[in-house]
Amino acid sequence: MNEYKYKSIMLIDDSDIDNMVNKHILSKNMVAENIIVFTSANDALTYFSENKTTTDEMLIPKIILLDINMPIMNGFGFLVEFEKITADNLKNTKVIMLTSSVDPNDIRRSKDYSSVISFISKPLSLEHLDEI
C-alpha cells in the first residue's frame, strides 16, 4: 500500500459540499491520513489553542487549505489570528488558499502572509494535488 503524503491536513471552509469533495479527493489520492474539517475559522483557532502543546502529527496539520469567503471571520481574518500564534507545534504549518475567488486582489493580498505558500482556485482537482 502507498504511504500518505501527510499525516494530517486541515480544511477550513463554510461549504459542506466543498469539504466533502475535498476530503474525498485528498484521502482517495493518499494526500493525508487524517483530514480535520472546520466550517468556521473561529472554531479552527479554538482548536489550535486547545492543542498548543501536543506533538501528535495526526492532530497538528502540516497544511491548512483555507477558503476566503466565509461568514463572521473570513480567510484573511483567520490568517491574521493564525500568524499571532506562537506555539511551537505550528512552526512548520503552511497555508494554501483554496477559494472560488478569482479576484486578483485576493491573490495579491494572500501573498502578504508569510504562512501562505500557494493559491488554488476551486474546485480542487487532481492537478492541484502536486502543489500540496
Partner: peptide
C-alpha cells in the same frame, strides 16, 4: 455565483 459553481465542478470531478 462562482462559489456554488465550483462546488458543482468539484462534485462532478468525484
Amino acid at each position: 455565483l462562482k462559489g456554488p459553481l465550483s462546488s458543482l465542478q468539484g462534485l462532478l470531478n468525484i
